[in-house]
């Protein structure tokens, strides 16, 4: 688990800057008017260890927000709060408000099943089910009972695969196992699987870290297209990727949200010296 290294200094430079310069107050524009998801004063604990400190952030409608930061800074943990994937970790506790439009997703009576149908997730490692390509994509629509007829299901599968720009590569072998695809194809299959349930928000947890550059380029292209229809939050290790795909970039440092600004601004003229230190490669 990445978060175990949370409190260890990544680098001496980082610790010194942290001690001297970071007040805990996020700089830049973490909030926006047209928020699809809004997080206020979010804290996350693993047992007694605090992984996220008081983070407030908005993700606008049809916006791509990139979350960057050194390993163990809590960006993945934060992302997993947004569709309550952290519920699967017993020791994890979340406080604060997280809202999907007007829905309080951490409300005690909130069921995670409809929530996760609205907020889908793509994981770091491609994780197709050991089923056929068709069944992988049809999995979500089937469990949510979105369709009654085989014809409609076929159509959802085709349109999802098309939108994940995988259709042409797999249309002749829809019934062969999804695990037989290449890594990049598997990841696009997972994206197709996610968009098949028509979520409103897609969370991507380092979706390209296990892929080669060509497959990465395809996924990035895809993210740009998907942003026309979906709201996307993406965690990435690659600053270039964040610069290429996102509208706004959030820089996390040791569980705190240091800076949120337009991506262009973050990478050309960062407001906070920690952000600058990270993007110029002084640590991380």
């Amino acid at each position: 688990m990445k978060d175990n290294t949370m409190n260890e200094p990544t680098d001496n430079v980082a610790t010194n800057i942290e001690e001297n310069a970071f007040s805990g107050q996020t700089v830049g524009t973490p909030l926006c008017d047209d928020a699809k998801m809004s997080m206020r004063n979010v804290n996350v604990f693993y047992d007694t260890k605090q992984a996220i400190h008081d983070v407030s952030l908005d993700i606008g409608k049809n916006e791509v927000v990139a979350m960057i930061g050194p390993s163990g800074c809590g960006k993945s943990t934060f992302l997993r709060c947004l569709n309550r994937m952290n519920d699967t970790i017993e020791s994890c506790k979340v406080t604060g408000d997280i809202k999907l439009e007007e829905l309080d997703i951490y409300h005690p009576k909130q069921d995670v099943v409809p929530l996760r149908a609205r907020v889908g997730m793509v994981f770091q490692k491609p994780n197709p089910f050991p089923k056929s390509i068709y069944d992988n994509v049809a999995y979500g629509p089937r469990i949510h009972g979105l369709v009654n007829r085989k014809y409609d299901l076929d159509e959802i599968v085709e349109s999802s695969l098309r939108r994940a720009s995988l259709w042409d590569e797999v249309k002749d072998r829809l019934h062969s196992p999804g695990t037989g695809l290449s890594g990049g194809q598997q990841q696009r299959l997972c994206i197709a699987r996610t968009i098949a349930v028509s979520p409103e928000v897609i969370l991507m947890d380092e979706p390209c870290s296990a892929l080669d550059p060509i497959a990465t380029a395809k996924i990035e292209e895809l993210i740009a297209e998907l942003s026309q229809k979906f709201t996307i939050a993406i965690v990435t290790h690659s600053m270039q990727q964040a610069a290429r795909v996102s509208h706004r970039t959030a820089y996390f440092h040791m569980g705190k949200l240091v800076e949120v600004n337009d991506t262009k601004r973050v990478f050309t003229n960062p407001e906070h010296e920690l952000t600058e230190a990270y993007i110029t490669g002084r640590f991380g």
Binding site: N83, M85, T88, V112, V113, P114, L115, R116, A117, G120, M121, F123, N127, P128, F129, P130, Y139, G140, I143, H144, C190, R193, T194, V197
Partner: peptide, 10 residues
Amino acid sequence: LRDGSLGLGA
């Protein structure tokens, strides 16, 4: 695999 399925709302 479990995460993938749970993440789809299963």
